[in-house]
Design a binder for these strands. Structure first.
Lengths: 190, 190
DNA sequence: TGAATAAACTAATAACATTAGCTCAGGCTG
DNA sequence: CAGCCTGAGCTAATGTTATTAGTTTATTCA
């Protein structure tokens, strides 16, 4: 038999990501991953530490990917246009990768590296807000508000939390406009 | 042995709620509940259909309770004061019952009764917005925005998503003020 | 008092995570 | 070039969980 499977840590993470995205975090089992890869469950232990660790790896990769996309969306833009672009990309990512988005939004207590990685998606927002005339505290309030609103919206949307009667795109535009406006008026106020 | 345990469906749900709140949804197992109640796991099946169903029951009860509290907070208030009171209660509930809040925010596809129950916490917000001069569509956008922002904030807070440097209470006040302001200005604009 | 019922139990099955120890193929060393 | 070492698969086994089947027992009610 020449064609042994030749797994790698990467291929295991990739298979796990696909499962998470297609069927949600709770569908991720090592048995399932092994089946997907044509291998027996114990073989996976040559490449990953265990289920927990695999989940963490998937979450880490998703978070990096998400951050990269937000950064790319912000690039070359400032002010309201930048905010709108980042917001749109935020929502697009959550829509395209519901499982990975959900996973990346989960906390992992006692994991310093993960905590650091979780800050990366926020950086583009911080950068955009530098263009506004906010003092340091205000700026942090604004970042938290933006993040909360975007996260809340895409979470609710992805779990089907909105009724079907009114266009969700329009609601999202309304939300983003409200945030932009709040920022403007806060800046103006002083 | 006179002192048989005498479980009831309610006591099982209560024990489950306590576990969910103390240690999160993933800590809820029937074995765990049984141990807590001084009983063997199969005995629970006399009172609940299974783990899935128990989770649903806990979520349903949490959602009802949450809705009641939001309704009570709104009572006797209108306009910005009502919004602030509901927002405060929203956050207080999520803080006091992190596991139950998280569970109640999860979707359950193909569950009509649950979908209906999930609408109840939104009702106080809808009622408050009737005091604003919004057309029907605008009003739905506003409800979605408010809900998203509140849900996003408390979710992020409960998973420790905010750094520790700046006061989170202040950020929450900022968020609520922004929302109130956006509503006012939208109403004024027409 | 005796039968019916409810609610506990024990025993058993199946899915999963994880560990231990075995085997084989390919590359490296002498 | 031969033998060994290592990496990566495997089988077997253990422990935890959910769940079902079938049994027992206590309480209630006629």
């Amino acid at each position: 038999m020449t064609g042994r499977k030749r797994l790698t840590a990467q291929s295991v993470v990739d298979a796990a990501s696909a499962i998470v995205d297609a069927e949600g975090t709770s569908a991720l089992t090592l048995s399932r991953v092994a089946r997907e890869l044509g291998v027996k469950p114990p073989s996976l232990y040559n490449h990953v530490i265990g289920l927990d660790s695999l989940l963490r790896d998937v979450a880490l990769m998703a978070t990096e990917d998400f951050a990269d996309r937000l950064g790319a969306a912000a690039m070359g833009r400032t002010g309201p246009a930048a905010l709108r672009a980042v917001a749109a990309e935020f929502r697009a990512y959550a829509k395209a990768h519901p499982g990975l988005y959900e996973l990346s939004a989960q906390a992992r207590p006692h994991d310093e590296e993960y905590a650091r990685a979780s800050m990366r998606p926020v950086e583009p927002v911080i950068a955009i807000l530098r263009g506004y005339d906010l003092d340091e505290k205000e700026s942090i309030h604004a970042v938290r508000t933006l993040r909360a609103a975007l996260h809340g919206f895409v979470s609710l949307e992805s779990i089907g939390g909105f009724g079907l009667d009114v266009d969700v795109d329009e609601s999202f535009a309304w939300l983003v406009a409200s945030l932009v406006e709040a920022l403007e008026s806060d800046t103006t106020r002083g």
